[in-house]
């Protein structure tokens, strides 16, 4: 049984509309001290599956290699605040369901669990109240989602 956390984010030279839009939303909220934000898609896959298979899945199913890059099981070394947002358990995760089907279609016949989420990597001067506000008012909807803050 292994756990993998795959992060997919836009390469630095590719247009990243989602990060740009999210930054604007935060500034609209009145927090002008945020300097930059980077959004990554998280896929957590666990089960009896090898790193090699995970790499195959990441490369063939999850990433657009021209505009995006993959990180597996390693967090960014840069300093900043990361807010991760996931669906609460029991809430339908349609993207995860589709990943399941995709893995099957790749002829990888493994019983795996998939969970998806979003990671927002923020840089700038922010108090912990600011971060909580951003997490609750913009990045997540606590009715169906939960968030984790990593410093």
């Amino acid at each position: 049984m292994s756990n993998y956390k795959i992060l997919i984010e836009h390469k630095d030279n590719a247009l990243d509309a989602e990060s740009k839009g999210t930054l604007k939303d935060i500034i609209d909220l009145g927090l002008k001290t945020v300097k930059s934000i980077k959004v990554s898609q998280i896929y957590e896959i666990s089960g009896d599956i090898s790193l090699h298979e995970i790499e195959e899945i990441s490369n063939d199913l999850l990433v657009d290699p021209i505009t995006q890059k993959i990180t597996i099981n390693s967090d960014s070394k840069e300093s900043g605040i990361a807010i991760e947002v996931y669906y609460k358990s029991g809430v339908t995760d349609a993207v995860a369901d589709t990943v399941h089907i995709g893995i099957k279609d790749m002829n990888i016949d493994k019983d795996v669990k998939v969970r998806t989420g979003k990671r927002y990597f923020l840089k700038g001067k922010l108090s912990s109240t600011n971060v909580k506000n951003i997490a609750e008012k913009i990045l997540s909807n606590t009715v169906v989602q939960e968030y984790v803050i990593r410093q």
């Binding site: 609460k88 029991g90 809430v91 339908t92 995760d93 349609a94 369901d97 589709t98 009715v143 169906v144």
Partner: peptide, 30 residues
């Protein structure tokens, strides 16, 4: 699944700050 339980009767009530995740429906257009 447990999503969207009581939507029909929920829509006959006033909203307030306490809502449960089960009244929310998640779509899958595919």
């Amino acid at each position: 699944g447990r999503d969207g339980i009581h939507g029909a009767t929920f829509s006959s009530l006033s909203l307030d700050e306490n809502v449960s995740s089960t009244v929310v429906q998640i779509g899958n257009p595919i």
